[in-house]
Amino acid sequence: MFKRFTQTRPFATLGIVIAAWLVLPVALKTFLRAGFFEFTAPLTVAASHLRDLQEYWALRLHRNRELIEAGRDLARVNGFYEYTVQQNNVLQAEIGTLEKALGLPALPGFRFEAARVAQRDLSGWWQRLVIRKGRNYGIPLGAPVIFTGGIVGRVSEVYATTAVVELVSSPNFRLAALIDGDTRPLSYQGGINRPFAPARGAIEFVPLDITAAASAPRRLVSSGLGGVFPAGLTVGQVTMVEPSADGLFKTGEVALDPRLSELTEVTVLVPLGGK
């Protein structure tokens, strides 16, 4: 009798654990999840700071001549950007004038919050980044995240000093997009993550007259419809479209920016006005 009890004790314990977990209130589970994340956040952030320090000391090894050349190149790029900023200001003023004249609602504005990437977790199941800014910098849930190559993803979890970004390559990521130069929206979804190759996404509901190939790719941009992303941000390059099974639309594949998996810094677009 005692032997039988000893044999079944582990399974009885497992049953109790499962039953306890099932009856645990959702609020408590949410609290526990946040608690365990916050508990490990200092480890994540400390490791990220150590990497930054390592990078800093590696950069200190560069010769002065290399630094002077890099400074000269940066000055050229800054000159070009200053000119672009001036052009942008003129265009913004023109948009403001037109909005007033036509009585249109103002376009949503954003505050740009640059954040360092603390951790990258790009698996076959999900694709996420942890960034080193959270509630302490007013990062809201669902905020768009971008980099120089276009869309990075959206903020999916916010904690005290960190936030989690779901990447555009993640299988759970969906977005209403447009082929650049076309006005008809289509559906984008991430998730084609082959090993040892840059991530790709899939598009659905592509109009039949749209064509694209690897030799003649088409730029895919955010539509600004039904979501948090402003219009015109690059999602990727459509490299293939083919008729779907129902024959009403086409489906295709989107090549995402290869730099997505190497990001060290991103920009969070924080909506102005607390929206």
Binding site: W125, P171, N172, Q189, G191, I192, N193, R194, P195, F196
Partner: peptide, 22 residues
Amino acid sequence: LSGLAAGPLPAHAGRWPRLAAD
């Protein structure tokens, strides 16, 4: 975990080679 994490998602042919490599 593959079964539980991938269950509710639409299947892409590209997922399986990645999972095998992982």
